[in-house]
Design a binder for these strands. Structure first.
Length: 584
RNA sequence: GCGCCCGUAGCUCAGUGGAUUAGAGCAUCGGUCUUCUAAACCGAGGGUCGCAGGUUCGAGUCCUGCCGGGCGCGCCA
């Protein structure tokens, strides 16, 4: 309907253009909106207000002229000028009711665009370091990414998802030493565990596994390893020299293959668990890209060589720097340390260059807000490589602070203090957890109160929406029991005259916009807001009007209406990967 | 100090440059189950949209400055 109105308005604009009153028509400037207040009709357009200035005309007069030149539209009851110069369209009741048949005939496709009609998009999300289990802080990215993937698909994009595994660098050494020291303890060695090692219980589990399968073969004397080590704890610069010392000595002591195996056993175990948790959470991935592999395949060297050839690198104090400041970054960045090792930034450049070369129109990264300073340098690198940095979208997700009542829970992977995503799902449930995560704008801080989510889970808005769906199913079930003929095909909808029925029809017609807007803005919360509104209108209607009435034509029209509501609720919940239950 | 995000009801938050009256939920108070599920509905109270300017037909929404909060500013990942 909106599209038809835009077409009508374009035609009127064209006529006025030929009369020399208006500039060339541009349909993109025509904004038709669904009105909030029924007094303003069903749709409103501000075109006259927008053009009044450049046409040098009074807005109301111009609106009148536009209306004079609109073509016949049989769906319209009235078209009038209102307020300062709005054009309000009032639909005929039959035209409004069409939405019900439209929803039901399109069924699961209602609100979607044809698959593959838009861009090909890669979403990279979560990508948590494989040094510990996922915790509630990762949940927000997981929920956002997986919802966005579905929403973008519904909007006609072709979407693939990727997890970048940071399985290289210093953190792998810390992981390996942490596991190995716990292993030594199991062998009976007295160990002084560094405070900067990974403290979590999951390290013990991995160590126990190693000890069970391998016995004492990796054992060494801790006393020998530790000989000459500095005291545990951070120095003035915050570095833990004790930890570094242990890592160095151990790598000397143990065969390199054992060291590598230690790290890979730990990473594999943790990744397995991460995969499982994400799967249970409803987040799935097409690709798992390893950082290690990029290094081993020489991709990093290649990409850096490319930068060097283009003259974007220089040496300073033994390190290799990238002139990112010439591409809008705050300052230049090191890509290769003076000890010859690549920085994480170097592998990340290679990763992004590789990603952008894989024929995606757009790549979306979902990052925690603490990485925001990083966006500039990655974009700078892409630009230096001749890749349009606009093709990389970086969505920053603000942190979720976790509370148990008024008590804030601080989390850190290293200290082992955190609430895992798994336990959150266990306590709150997948549906509520996902809904809770995406119901706020992602650039908004989120307070996640475990107490509220568990103790008062009945007040959680997700149940409100699901309940509406279940109630409709229940009515339909009852109708079947009473052998009322449930109309499978369009029937006469003229009995739908109640205010609540009009409101529901209007709300149904807004669904495609909610999906599209969520997709365009990369903000699933528009969809949650929409679903709550639709559920609210249904609950109000339910309490005001009985569906199963004796008068068959009325009853059937109402059944069609609530079936359309059920379909739309189900479609929306499905995009959030939340269950639409038939009973509760 | 510099950069990014945020500031809307007691609390948590929606709000697409639009319409005499800025909306939800929670919390508070008062009503509604012999009826299709009361996990629901109806109603009441509660606001200088952080402050001050500016842009324009029109600003919670855009711009500038200030105040307050969060995060980031490594040859860590």
């Amino acid at each position: 309907m909106k599209a038809t109105l835009v077409a009508n308005l374009t035609q009127a604009w064209q006529t006025l253009h030929q009369q020399g009153l208006l500039p060339d028509p541009n349909p993109e400037r025509i904004e038709v909106v669904s009105t909030k207040d029924p007094k303003h009709g069903d749709y409103a357009c501000n075109l006259a207000l927008v053009l009044a200035r450049e046409a040098n005309l009074n807005a109301r007069d111009l609106a009148e002229q536009i209306i004079q030149n609109l073509p016949e539209n049989p769906d319209l009851l009235s078209t009038e000028v209102a307020g300062p110069g709005f054009i309000n369209f009032q639909l005929r009741p039959e035209a409004k009711a069409e939405i019900v048949d439209q929803v039901l005939s399109q069924a699961t496709n209602y609100g979607t665009r044809p698959p593959g009609s838009e861009q090909r998009i890669l979403i990279e999300y979560v990508s948590a370091n494989p040094t510990g289990p996922l915790h509630v802080g990762h949940g927000r990215g997981a929920a956002l990414g997986s919802c966005l993937a579905r929403i973008l698909e519904a909007a006609g994009h072709t979407v693939e998802c990727e997890y970048f595994i940071n399985d290289a660098g210093r953190q792998m050494d810390i992981l390996a030493i942490s596991v190995w020291l716990r292993y030594l303890e199991l062998c009976g060695e007295p160990v002084i565990f560094p405070e900067a090692g990974y403290q979590g219980d999951y390290i013990l589990d991995i160590a126990a596994d190693c000890h069970r399968t391998r016995g004492d073969v990796w054992r060494a004397s801790f006393e020998n390893i530790r000989a000459g080590a500095p005291d545990d704890g951070p120095d003035e610069d915050g570095h833990n020299m004790y930890l570094d010392f242990l890592i160095l000595r151990t790598r000397d002591f143990l065969d390199e293959t054992i060291w590598t195996e230690l790290a890979s056993v730990a990473v594999d175990t943790l990744l397995e668990r991460i995969r499982r948790d994400l799967d249970h959470f409803g987040a799935s991935f097409d690709y798992w890209q390893s950082e290690r592999e990029l290094l081993d395949d020489g991709k990093v060297e290649q990409t850096i060589a490319q930068l060097r050839e283009a003259g974007h690198l220089y040496e300073l104090e033994g390190a290799l720097w990238f002139r990112s400041s010439e591409f809008g970054d705050e300052k230049d960045r090191v890509v290769q340390r003076s000890n010859g090792q690549w920085t994480y930034f170097a592998t990340d450049i290679a990763y992004h260059a590789d990603k952008m070369a894989r024929s995606y129109g757009t790549a979306i990264n979902i990052w925690g807000a603490d990485h925001h300073g990083y966006a500039g340098r990655v974009r700078a690198a892409l630009q230096a490589l001749g890749i349009d940095p606009e093709r990389l979208e970086i969505l920053l997700v603000q942190f979720a602070s976790l509370y148990r009542g008024k008590q804030k829970i601080s989390m850190s992977t290293r200290s082992g203090e955190f609430v895992t995503l798994q336990s959150l799902q266990h306590e709150v449930g997948q549906d509520a957890a996902r809904f809770f995560y995406v119901m706020r704008k992602s650039d908004q801080h989120l307070d996640f109160d475990l107490q509220l989510a568990t103790e008062q889970s009945v007040d959680n808005p997700v149940y409100y929406v699901q309940y509406a769906h279940a109630r409709i199913c229940s009515i339909l079930e009852r109708a079947k029991d009473e052998e009322i003929n449930i109309p499978e095909d369009p029937c006469d909808l003229s009995p739908l005259t109640d205010e609540g029925e009009r409101a529901l029809q209007k709300q149904l017609s807004r669904y495609p916009d909610a999906v599209l807007r969520s997709a365009q803005e990369r903000e699933p919360h528009h969809l949650t807001v929409y679903l709550r509104k639709l559920a609210q209108e249904f609950h109000a209607y339910y309490n005001a009007v009985a569906v199963l009435v004796d008068e068959l034509p009325v009853c059937q029209a109402r059944l069609r209406l609530i079936m359309a509501v059920r379909q739309t609720l189900g479609n929306g919940l499905n995009l959030l990967n939340i269950d639409a239950p038939e009973s509760m």
